[in-house]
Amino acid sequence: MESITKNRQPVEALRAMVARAYGPEEVPDAGEDWVSELSDGWFNVAYRIRLRSGTQAVLKIAPPPDVEVMTYERGAMATELAALRLIREHTKVPVPEVDFADQSHEVCDADYFFMTYIDADNLHAIRDAVAGTEINAYDEALGAITRELNTIPGTAFGPLAGPGESTWRAAFLRMVEELLRDGERRGVDLPHGYDVIREVVAAHADSLDEVTEPRFVEWDLWPGNCMVGDGRIVAIIDHERAFYGDPLMEFGFAGSESSAYGDATAFIRGYGHRPFTTAERTRRRLYNLHLALIQIIETNFRAHTGTEQYDWACERLQETVALLAE
């Protein structure tokens, strides 16, 4: 996926980063075919690196400092590193090992880190070629993994590194308001007026008060961030959007209120969630509204040249506003 947030670096800078992380003895010889870009990501640039010893690693680099990102994306790489540490400390969910992280900006103009390379298939990439029963098994496993991630407790609602809020209502309303201000600042057109969206969210905010315990929410755990092999999930990747909040905000539940996000049945079965209450369905609709806002507004920040995502997400926003009006 192409985006102006991808901070591609010249080969000599990549060699300097490898030397800093693994030592000069692991820097590949000049001219060797040792680096390739992994093109599936939507935000950070990522490279597959083959070290001189033959070991493979992945290098992720944060966006360039002169490229404006959305408010909630600021410090995303630090969030990912914190998320990986929490997941390893509190769960058995498989994630890559961080080999080295550098925030000095001495050999690169942005934060970067190296992690282990996962030799497996991307579930989103192979989904159409896999039998339905196998997809259901993967979705069930993804539900179980998500539930395990949600057991990690927080002390406040909001970003992993803070500042946090004492209530989920305050944290979620802040998340929505940050998005709306980003869109207004960039002049992004919404199918409903910005103040209309604010009114819709405020009218249903009481449903958020049921959530009283901050829990780790991976949020971006869709099939594209799930690596599989030999019929099982072998790693979860891309953790830069994690926060402490309501587990019902996890992406796997999105299809429960909109079939456009896929069938959530197997995921919910694997998660072990009982049938949703009226308040939970309202919250899930609010979370789909939040997701649609991100998908619309980020097309401007990432300078998309096509309108496919924008048009699709506008449909999702209109759909969700109508559901909330029922």
Score class of each variant (00 low, 15 high):
204 H>R: 10
214 P>D: 15
124 H>C: 12
149 L>S: 01
137 A>K: 09
187 G>A: 14
139 D>S: 14
194 Y>W: 06
199 E>I: 11
198 R>A: 06
145 I>M: 04
206 D>T: 02
174 R>G: 03
140 E>H: 12
130 V>P: 01
118 I>K: 05
104 S>Y: 06
191 P>N: 15
185 R>H: 09
210 E>C: 06
147 R>A: 11
120 A>W: 05
121 D>A: 11
224 G>H: 05
149 L>I: 12
157 F>G: 02
212 T>A: 06
200 V>Y: 11
217 V>Q: 03
223 P>D: 12
205 A>Y: 00
142 L>I: 09
215 R>A: 07
169 R>M: 14
141 A>K: 14
232 R>L: 08
189 D>C: 02
184 E>P: 01
156 A>W: 12
150 N>R: 05
115 M>E: 04
112 Y>W: 04
180 L>W: 09
103 Q>G: 09
229 G>Q: 08
207 S>F: 02
122 N>A: 02
212 T>F: 11
219 W>H: 07
232 R>A: 14
183 G>L: 13
130 V>T: 13
170 A>P: 06
222 W>P: 00
194 Y>T: 14
139 D>F: 05
129 A>I: 01
112 Y>E: 01
176 V>D: 08
176 V>W: 02
127 R>D: 03
222 W>R: 15
220 D>C: 09
208 L>T: 10
171 A>M: 08
179 L>C: 09
195 D>N: 13
109 D>V: 06
135 I>A: 11
117 Y>T: 00
135 I>E: 07
147 R>F: 10
217 V>C: 15
182 D>H: 10
232 R>H: 15
118 I>R: 01
177 E>R: 08
156 A>S: 10
138 Y>V: 06
119 D>L: 00
146 T>P: 01
174 R>I: 00
162 G>Y: 03
122 N>P: 06
189 D>Q: 11
108 C>A: 14
179 L>N: 07
102 D>F: 03
233 I>E: 01
232 R>S: 15
136 N>Y: 03
131 A>K: 05
130 V>K: 01
196 V>K: 14
168 W>A: 03
182 D>N: 15
